[in-house]
Amino acid sequence: MDTIRLAGKLGTFAQTHQRGAGGLLERAQQGDEEAFSLLFEQYAKPISNFIYRMVGRGDLAEDLAQETFVRAYRKIRTLHLHDGTQLSTWLFSIAKNVVRESFRSRRMDQNKVGIDDVLPVSVRNDEPAPDERLWNKELQHMVQQGLQTLDPDKRQVFILRVFQQCSYEEIAAITGYSMPKLKADLYRARTQMRDLLRPFLEQSNEV
């Protein structure tokens, strides 16, 4: 079943779903929609999160995330994973391209994020207390606003590294950037985001 070679350690998510996916992949490539769902449904949340953080709007993010999977369905028949390329890498590459096209076509003002654009967290029975919920919402808003102040290259690298915990090799494969550029972009992005997060870091210290 393991015909796909792994290149180094993967982020938790990719590693989980890479092994054991060989049979499902073949079936999905033959047009089996059920196999496609079994294989890719687990990527729905990471892809949605990635796109949401890139574009900053919940409604648009959902639409683009769905578009990502539809394109994956179209392209999967011709997919050949080789030289350690991962399924997650391929999918994130599609997502990256969908976002880029969206930026071009919609000519969004990437720096404006309204408080109402923040995606809601799903309601659970053990929801946090109201003041904690508000704090989380403010944090989310601050993080999202901070991300929008990063230029798209740095934002992309930061999201893949910090939120998806992709390795540098995976990020290089998804974005096409060189290692030195990745590391430099990540360092600058972290520094910038740290400044914005400082009040929350101090508050979380007090808790």
Partner: peptide, 17 residues
């Protein structure tokens, strides 16, 4: 601590996604 804060901002997707 930064990572823990970022983890709090993870969003859920719609059930019918």
């Amino acid at each position: 601590r930064e990572q823990e804060l970022y983890a709090r901002t993870e969003v859920e997707i719609a059930r019918d996604f």
